[in-house]
Computed example of a mutant assay.
Amino acid sequence: MSEQQGIIQVTNLMKSYGEFEAVKGISFSVKKGELFAFLGTNGAGKSTTIDILCTLLKKSAGEVIIDGYKIGEGVGNNHIRKKIGVVFQESVLDERLTVFENILNRGQFYNLSKHQIQENYQFVSDYLKLDDIQNKKYGTLSGGQRRRADIARAIIHKPTILFLDEPTTGLDPQTRLFVWDAIKRLQEETNMTIFLTTHYMEEASVANQVVVIKEGRLVAEGTPNQLKEKYAFDSVHLEFKHTFDPEPWLKEKQLSYALKNSIYTVRVASTLEAYDILKKLEGQIQSFEVVKGSMDDVFINIIAEKGSVV
């Protein structure tokens, strides 16, 4: 497999349920060792695509190659299952067993020796800090503790690729930060490829590559910075003194703006342009705030575009 081609290669992937097309011919590539964010609204086809990539669902058409093996051909699926780990939205662990017992059983599914399981367990425990929960029954754990165990289960065989389907949804901010730190460490320290879906755009902002799908079609792709340049913009929020009418000045300077609750939001090309505006309006401003374009803006603007397909 050529690393330049990508460890995951998806070409014209389609999935239909009768007359309904859930995935409509999408193509993308994921490079080895990168954090890849796969975004879309509910019903866009994200989960369907992931289920196909994880060999849980048959494709209707197209080609998927993972780490050199084609999905659906010969023994390809079996090889792929050994290469991947999956953290589902819903847990698949046994609530009656302890964390250690659950992960031990999962390791046995991959025909690991006792020595390998013990060695790998130490590996996952170091990343997920399992010492305080390993002897607790899974059914007694909090949401954050469960998520740590879920990720540990998914990587006990040290997979090449880790699929994470909204891994931090419903977690408190502190636990989200811990889980995200563990994910980033896995990527950076072991060169594990991370395939992520998330509703938290700040998580997608640190991805190496982002793909957005809408109604089963790929509508945008690029690095976070590339997408911000195209779909987001910086702005300065201005509240003026009552003695000054800003609209004639803003129109004269041909500045794009919106007014809400006495706050003018002025679109700017950069924070330097915001500084220039503030300098020219010195003495007329009651308060201001410079706001950088975000991945939230990117996602909202991409989804809002009608008929936008790349």
Rank of each mutant, 00 (worst) to 15 (best):
E221V: 10
I194H: 04
Q226N: 07
Y264M: 10
V179F: 06
Q209S: 13
Y127L: 12
G85V: 06
I50H: 02
L164V: 03
V124D: 07
I302W: 01
G74Y: 07
F178T: 11
E166R: 01
R217S: 15
E19F: 05
V75A: 14
P173R: 08
V291H: 08
D165L: 02
W180Y: 03
G76C: 05
N102E: 04
V211L: 07
K292R: 14
D94C: 10
F288D: 05
S47F: 00
K292P: 06
I194Q: 07
Y110G: 13
T198I: 01
V92I: 13
K59N: 00
A207R: 03
Q145E: 14
K230R: 12
T223N: 10
K251R: 10
L97N: 05
I213V: 13
V10H: 09
D234Q: 07
V206W: 00
S125W: 06
E203K: 02
E247P: 03
V211P: 04
V99Q: 03
D296Q: 15
I133K: 04
V290Y: 05
E203G: 06
N105T: 08
F244A: 09
R81Y: 09
G74V: 04
I8D: 01
H115F: 14
G18A: 05
A154E: 09
R148M: 09
A61V: 09
S308T: 09
F109K: 12
E95M: 10
F28E: 02
V266F: 02
S205C: 08
V23W: 01
L164K: 03
H199T: 03
I194V: 14
I117S: 06
I155N: 09
N78P: 01
M295H: 01
L272Q: 13
G293A: 12
Q89G: 13
T190E: 15
S270I: 08
T49R: 07
V236D: 04
F100E: 13
I161M: 08
I303H: 05
F288I: 08
D67P: 03
K58I: 02
L227Q: 06
F288L: 10
L278T: 04
G216H: 00
G18R: 12
Q174Y: 10
S308K: 11
I263E: 13
T193S: 11
I65D: 03
E239A: 07
S205Y: 05
A207V: 02
L141M: 09
A204M: 05
T271Y: 03
G6T: 03
L35S: 00
V268W: 02
E247T: 15
E166K: 04
E305N: 07
Y264D: 04
H242G: 15
R81I: 07
V290P: 01
K15P: 00
L281P: 06
F240C: 09
E90D: 15
N42H: 14
